[in-house]
Design a protein around this nucleic acid. Structure first.
Lengths: 210, 210, 210, 210
DNA sequence: TATGAATGAGCATTCATTCAT
DNA sequence: CATGAATGAATGCTCATTCAT
């Protein structure tokens, strides 16, 4: 019981450091993410950082983890509400949820996507993606029961959606939000129909050979 | 004319530095790209770098420039050979060319896409993308003459293609190369048909409003 | 109050660096004044310098400032004691004070006068000089109330005094200290009398015209 | 005889390098005086410098030597013309000559006096000074035949003249040229009379003792 | 001789990390 | 626990000098 306050203290410090880390990441970018700055932002001495994290990388890892977790939760929640409405022809709720999640913190989104060495957080990204992928695979399969390439299609859709949504938020192309959702919906729907049709017609045509 | 050998010497040195720069970039990553390492890799003294490049950034820029130029040339050439075969229903040659270009140097592709701060080289990327985009816009318009959103569709397609191809090369999902080309072709074709059809049916349906 | 030792630590470190800086300046000269050398001389790591000074120039500035301040204080004190005895015919106390100040640290005097780019520290020098100049102007005016060239005379005297004293300390000509003071006193006194007399006789004679 | 052209070539190159060195010294200052700049200014390769001078310092030495030599010649010539007019009461021609010499190249004068480490060229400076000193000593002795301190007086006068003239040219105080010459003349004349008088009255008065 | 590419020790400065207090 | 002064290896870059051609 006497340990409680200490534990509480620890958690509080960890949170403070992570919050400061996120702030610094957003304000100063990946290259400006220095331990001194994080410590200063957290109102803590540089040495204290090392009581809670083994090194600078660990702080950054935690910040990024939190970011993906946060996004995953947002998406989960959004999907949970609307999952009933989703069909291969109407993926708008999913896309909307995705966009909403990304629009929550564009500054951090930018740093995460454009400044971080992606390799280090590849696994983390997967977690957000997974749920959407599952749904998509289900949809692809629903449309064409015995498609041996359904998983491929799901991969294509998820990657495309994630990147298009990200780029739309970051690069702000001159496309209205609703129009954009419409385009993505058309992309998915068209893709699935096209595939179903190709299979019905009798397999793939190959015009190239590598 | 008697100066030729000297010029040759210069070129040789420039090439050596750039090759070393590329090597360091691949091996040590963007953060490990230091002038001392480049010099060492080139078997040259640090001072020599500065006879051929004004500063570190210039070396890096040249490495990246070469990369994009290389890709652009490869793509151009590939497209040149097959451009006649391209239709909205058969984008396989374009996709194949794109993949081939990217497969040429996956290690560098990884650094360029996953470690470089994108902001600094945004413009470079555009140059390769442009040619594909033009073709795509043309295709979108061809399919639906008075579509006010043709440019949106082109944006969607180009971003999707670029990212899917990149991710396929880098993340090596378990998808056969030909199958992958097939999927991308279906994605584009399905998308364009879906859009054409939606427009024919009488405008868009909106289920969400933000 | 409990912070005192820390403050003391800081002061101590600053003093150590400045002392080292002075030592390096004297031993290695202006051109040899490098941060690494200062750090080594201070028995400190190069990085530590930058906790107390923003850059190399700041260390150097502080060393020079201290030097001038020290000189100014010495001179002020010396003058304070003897100012009553000063007349146009007896400037010995001023000269003595000036010499005493300069003799305090001839090695540093040498660097300051012979190695520093004067432009950068012109202003500093002025501060010490000013007091003497005021006294001198007063003396010049006292001797000849309505002389429009009194300021010129003050300038001549101050520049001459400063340089003669400096050169005497640095070049160690074979002149006894008391004899030297006597000579300078004669120089000033003779100058002022000569000028007063010339004016009385009826203005200046010009033998040259430019 | 076949060696003549080579020798001529050598001389020419040496001259070119020295001229370039002077130019660089004036334009870029002592800190900007780099071998590369000198070579470039001379239209010569950096390596060639080392055929004629052992190192950078040697070039600089020669430039400074020439400067003092030049000044000495100018002064000699000026004095030669007017030496008959010089008396203890009329040093105007000497001063005028001194000023004229210094005014010939104020930019170089500035570098030589305010940027160069004086210690390295102490001896050179002496050469210009010597002639004036001799004349002055003669004048001092003329005024007071058996003065054991005549040499001291000469030293005082020469140092004072040199520095006052230099400072006048460089700092451009608000003193008319003719007025300035008048002041210096008064300084010398007054000084010599004062000393003669003191000696006549019966030796020196000491009010200070160190 | 003359060249100029190549050198490499040296510079000022930064910042993740440690450790005595 | 928390501190923050101290560290020192590493950075990008300069420039006097050398030497193969």
């Amino acid at each position: 019981m006497r340990k409680e306050p200490r534990q509480a203290r620890s958690r509080e410090m960890v949170e403070r450091i992570i919050a400061a880390g996120r702030e610094v990441l957003v304000q100063a970018g990946y290259e400006g993410f220095s331990t001194n700055r994080v410590a200063e932002q957290a109102g803590v001495s540089p040495g204290s950082l090392y009581q809670y994290f083994p090194d600078k990388a660990a702080i950054l890892d935690e910040v990024i983890d939190r970011y993906w977790e946060h996004n995953a939760v947002l998406t989960e929640r959004a999907l949970g509400d609307r999952v009933a409405q989703i069909t291969p022809d109407n993926t708008r709720p999913v896309i909307d949820a995705l966009l909403t999640a990304m629009e929550a913190d564009p500054a951090l989104l930018r740093v995460v996507h454009e400044e971080l060495p992606q390799a280090r957080w590849r696994e983390r990204r997967t977690q957000l993606v997974r749920r959407v992928r599952e749904l998509t695979t289900a949809a692809a399969i629903a449309l064409s029961h015995d498609d041996p390439h359904a998983a491929d299609a799901a991969w294509v859709i998820v990657i495309a959606m994630e990147n298009l949504a990200t780029k739309w938020v970051l690069d702000r192309p001159d496309i209205d939000r609703d129009d954009f959702i419409e385009e993505l919906n058309a992309l998915v729907a068209g893709y699935l129909h096209q595939r179903a049709q190709s299979r019905a017609v009798g397999g793939r045509q190959r015009t190239t050979s590598s």
